[in-house]
Simulated assay, not measured.
Amino acid sequence: MTAICVLDGFTLNPGDLDWSPLADIGPFDVHDRTPKELILSRAAGARFLLTNKTVLDAATLEAMPSLEYIGVLATGTNVVDVAAAKRLGIAVTNVPGYGPDAVAQMGFAHVLHHMSRVSAHHDAVTQGQWSGQADFCFTLGQLESLSGKTLGLVGFGDIARQMARIGMAFGMKLLVHSRSKPTDLPEGAKFVALDTLFAESDVLSLHCPLTDDTRDMVNRESLALMKQGALLINTARGGLVDEVALADALNAGRVRAGVDVLSTEPPAPNNPLLHAANISITPHNAWATVKARQKLLDIAVENLRAFSRGESVNRVD
């Protein structure tokens, strides 16, 4: 009987990592993806489940009497009915802090995409536009320096702190807004109201959870506060943004955006951001460097090892 069932391991490990450390804990099966209708048959008799985005609702959990443990292969645990798991005596863990440097790196990749326009100039060069110039260089439009610009951060967790370090290394000024005022703001950084952050940031980056209070926090009203040409970065959650309102602001040339997340993933073909102007989009892969994925897997395995020893590590139930 399989002790450990990985329901959807492909995004964590598309083939370049090693699942074998799980064998020290018990027999295991790994499935790339598991649709809802196959969860119970694949997990039949398993004591331990690992899931990334496969949803485990109350009815599913109630149908698995052998289940003792769910390890979420991510930081967010919204794919599990944690309250039902607690009622049923099923432990739930997550994997915090595995890749803030990776996500911040992607955040600034979007920033530099808009400020330095590397891809646009590369395309122009390979299409022969440089070869036909009279001068030794050419530009397709204004290039921008980050030094002296203001970076605004909504939230100040691990990823936002890494964004702050990178931004300050570029010589940027720093504004921060979060639910409570951090006690460890970098020297020179200012804690401000949210409206002030929207109004004064040249680059505004979202790093807060998606809750009822934060859903659609980027909306027509908050976008209207932003500077002409300001850049919105979202590596957090797509639901933080009213995508129709943002698309309208982008197409009007009011703001720019770089996003790694959308409200629905994969997006519907008619998502208004897919065909908007002044935006760069990556497919929710900011977290997915080899280093970050390996750390995630290592922590997930150690979470399960700890549980099997009777210890509580990264429990969220």
Rank of each mutant, 00 (worst) to 15 (best):
A193P: 09
A276E: 04
L40N: 12
E37S: 13
A85G: 15
D24M: 09
Q294Y: 10
S116N: 05
V316Q: 06
P96N: 09
H110R: 03
L22V: 01
E144K: 09
P35K: 15
F136V: 14
V203W: 11
D24N: 09
S41N: 10
S66N: 14
Y98M: 05
G239P: 03
H114M: 15
P182T: 01
G239E: 01
F191D: 12
S201Y: 05
E302S: 14
G188I: 15
L231S: 12
F156C: 06
I25D: 05
L49F: 00
A120T: 08
S308R: 12
T289N: 10
A46L: 00
V154D: 10
Y69A: 00
D16N: 07
V192E: 11
A63W: 02
A85E: 11
T2I: 03
A286W: 03
D248Y: 02
T126R: 07
S131P: 08
F191Q: 04
V82Q: 02
M168I: 15
A249E: 06
W130G: 04
V6G: 03
G76Y: 01
Q129Y: 15
A247C: 03
S222V: 12
Y98C: 07
V259R: 00
M172D: 05
F48R: 02
V241H: 00
A245N: 11
Q129P: 13
R220M: 14
A286N: 03
D24I: 14
V79C: 11
E144W: 15
S145G: 14
D135F: 15
L56I: 02
H275A: 07
V118T: 09
S263F: 00
V313I: 05
F48P: 02
L231V: 06
A59S: 14
M1G: 05
S131C: 15
V203A: 07
R254H: 12
A102C: 13
R161M: 13
P269S: 15
A169M: 08
L197Q: 10
H121N: 10
V125T: 14
A257Y: 01
A124L: 11
M1V: 05
D81L: 03
I279D: 10
I25W: 11
A102P: 00
L204Y: 08
L225M: 13
A245T: 14
A288Q: 09
D260V: 00
S20G: 12
S131M: 06
N314I: 07
L40Y: 02
T214Q: 11
L140V: 04
K190F: 10
C5G: 03
V103C: 12
I281H: 01
N271A: 03
M226R: 01
D101W: 11
R309T: 14
T2D: 10
S147T: 04
D213W: 13
N285Q: 06
Q127N: 13
L304S: 00
K181S: 12
S308E: 08
A286G: 01
E302I: 11
S222E: 07
S116M: 07
G253N: 04
A160E: 03
Y69I: 01
T289H: 04
V301T: 07
A224N: 04
H177Q: 13
A224E: 11
D248P: 01
